[in-house]
Every structure is written in structure tokens, then in C-alpha cells.
Amino acid sequence: MNRLDKVQLFALLLLSGVWTVLCTPALDGTGGMLGAVLGCGVQLLLCLPLLRESVPEFSRTIQQHRWLGIVYAAYFTIWGSFGFSQLHDAAPAGLHAWSGGAVLLILLTCLYTSTAGLRTAGRAAPFLAVLLLLSVAVLTIGAGKRIIPERLFLQTEGIRSGFLSYLAGSGELAAVWLLLGRIRGSGNPAVLAYLPAKLGLYLLLSCLSIVAGGRLTASQQYPFLTLTALAQPLEGQRADALYLLAFVTLFVMHLTLMTGLAGHCLTLLYPRAERAVPLLLPVMLLLSRIFPGEGLQMAAACCMPVLTAGGVLFAGLRERRRAAV
């Protein structure tokens, strides 16, 4: 895997994280927003072992404990297949220009980007992050006309479900250890910036859904996608094309990251497997067809804390024991 810089790391993590945010299946009101803040705090705690001065290198650890490499590869494959499941379920909900031809085009794009490698995706990520911010700005302006402030009030209901939902949607965290080993200099600022940035976008979208979308977004299965249908800033020109572009871009970057990470793990274990990395895409697609989306998310969510913090702690312990011996 080639080197990334801090901005590229931040953009890659943010784009992958916002994809899951966009496909949030339900809102829990302001209680859910509070839960998300708590979830972000837990994410920061999970990342603490990764932000130390001397972090064991991922590639060396995998080569010493091959089973760990398989676990990480399987995890990224499952998280990528959950992405396919989200695309299948969420896409028709708020994006009306959806067809089989569009899905095929997206798959071909993902195939191309996954063969191009993470370096290429890393170069594109900052530009696409700007596109994401532009879409959010347009969404905010469009939704701003419909804001009713009385809808926003403090609730204690939904804190627990918001916390669990936010934490379960943070599968990209497990990629931090791997990616930190592949950037120039310290990646800590990127990770420390990505966590509040993702939370900030989630809170903004939730807030807009509550005050501008009201009961209309609350009653729909994918409230943020319904919000895009409501947030049309201009009367004579719809913003659907921009939202569709952002939606597809987020998915492609998310899949590219997961495919690249899973492929990197497999390549470390079996160098000849490098050419077979694009085959991970049909594997992910197949898994998404076989297993229900909630099952895939549950499996990944249970492993995420372990793989984010547990993996690096385990590697650190083994190195200390080896040094002591």
C-alpha cells in the first residue's frame, strides 16, 4: 500500500463514516443526538491506544500473528458487504433516478477504484470531501426555509438507542491502526479531527431533520435521504443531481476503502493474492445477498471495538513480552 498524508487520511475516514451516517435507518430525536455525542466519546477512548508515540506496526504484527490478519480481512469484507446492503435498501428511498443500469455502473466504478489502490483513492478523497461539504451546505440552505424551532427540545428518550446506533455505524474505526502505519508523519491530528467532524455532520443532519423535516422525516425509514427531497434551495432548479452525486461518491469511496484494506491484509499474508483483490467486491456483494443487513452490521459492530483498540493493545503486549524474554 502506498503512503497517504494526513489530509487524505482524514478525508478517507470521513467519507467512509458519513456513508453510514447518511444511511441511518431511524432518528431518535435530541436524545439520539446526545447518545451520538456519548458514542463519539467512546470512539475517542477506543482510539487512545492508537494515538500513543510508539504504536506497534500493523504489517509486522500481522506477519507475526497471521490469524489476526485473517480476522481483519474478514471484518473489512463484512463491513463492505454491509455497505452493499445499505445501498440496496436505502437507494430507492430518497433517490428517484435509480435503476439496474445505475447499480451496474457503480459496481464497475468500484471495481476500477479498488484496482487503482488506496493511494489513488486517497488523492481523490480531499476533493470529494469538498463535494460532500458543498452538498451539506446546499442541504442546509434548502432546509433552512422550513425550520420550525419549536420542534427542537431536549429529550432523554432515545439516548441509549442513539448511542448504540452511532457506535454500530462506525465500522471504519477499525481501519485506523492499519492506515496510521501508512501515512507520512503522525496521523494523530487526522484521527482527532475526523471524530468530531463526523459527529458534527451527524448532529447537523439530525438537527435539520428534526426542525425542518419534522414528522415527515421521522416517519420515513431513511430520514436523511427524505431530508434531501425536502431541502430544495431553489424553486426553478432541483438539487437532486448534487445529492445523487454525493450519495454515489460516498458509497464508492466507502467500498474502495474497505476493499483496499481487506486486500492489503490478504496481501500481507499471501503476497500472490494481490491480483485477486478485485474479487473481494463480488464476495462482498454475495455476502450482502445471503445475509441480512442487520446481521452483518451486528457482527461488525461487535468486532469493531476489539479490532480498533484490542488489536493494537494485544500487539503491544506481545512485543513487551518478547522484549522481556
Binding site: H96, Q220, A229
Partner: peptide, 10 residues
Amino acid sequence: LFLEQGISPG
């Protein structure tokens, strides 16, 4: 009409 056909909310 609104959810499936994308009629303007305004």
C-alpha cells in the same frame, strides 16, 4: 407523488 415521484415539497 412526493416520496416516489419526487414532486417539489414547495
